[in-house]
């Protein structure tokens, strides 16, 4: 198979790689915020349970979680494995990444000084107004480098979807590599991921720069 053909075949799977990437971000970023609030809840039961769940999500391999989400329903409830593997992939990825994001959010939120909350309280801002207008913009600015880190990792982690035979770019590359006894598809995959991440780096750098109009 020519190099050009390998590129075309794997390029067809790249759309699915992008689907995992964007859908995971879409769901995990807000879900992480909800988990983070639950983790910081004054209700110790909620906080402790959340802490435990997050520790499991961070302490076990994403691959294992993906297998559990994809095949768990069959073994547990005898529900047939869904034809469209994108659904379990996005669920597993979103929950796993939300766990990481929740801890990043928590670190950011807790780093904002009490004085900011007190100033807002004196001026009569409600709790929601204080969070949205005063706290969150400062938190986003602070956590952006850590979030970029996670996003870069997510680009590469999309390849884990091959464990459930979801036909994304890396899965196709692996199939070609096996059938052609060639290492080239893996090198091509490397190029795809690197270029993808170069773009991610560029975009995130732009966002970071746009927020650095003030010193912290």
């Amino acid at each position: 198979m020519s190099l050009q053909m390998i590129f075309i075949k794997m390029g067809e799977g790249f759309g699915k790689t992008c689907a995992i990437f964007f859908l995971t971000l879409l769901f995990s970023l807000p879900l992480g915020m909800i988990i983070s609030f639950m983790r910081m809840s004054k209700n110790t039961v909620v906080s402790k349970i959340t802490q435990f769940v997050v520790s499991v999500l961070r302490g076990t391999p994403l691959m294992l979680q993906l297998l559990a989400v994809t095949y768990g329903p069959y073994y547990l409830f005898n529900i047939s494995v869904s034809r469209n593997k994108l659904i379990p992939v996005v669920i597993a990825f979103s929950v796993n990444y939300a766990a990481y994001f929740s801890e990043i959010y928590r670190g950011g939120i807790e780093s904002i000084s009490v004085g900011q909350y007190e100033a807002a309280a004196i001026l009569g801002y409600s709790k929601v107004q204080t969070f949205i207008r005063i706290i969150l913009p400062q938190v986003i600015r602070r956590i952006l480098p850590s979030v970029t880190n996670e996003i870069v990792t997510l680009v590469k982690d999309t390849s884990i979807a091959f464990t459930v035979s979801y036909q994304e770019m890396f899965t196709i590359g692996k199939q070609i590599a096996n059938s052609q006894t060639s290492f080239t598809p893996f090198l091509v995959a490397g190029v795809f991921y690197y270029v993808f991440n170069a773009i991610v780096g560029l975009v995130m750098g732009k966002i970071e720069k746009s927020m650095s109009y003030y010193k912290q």
């Binding site: 100033a119 400062q138 912290q216």
Partner: peptide
Amino acid sequence: FQSFNLFPH
């Protein structure tokens, strides 16, 4: 406040 607590952003 003693430490101003202006909103930096």
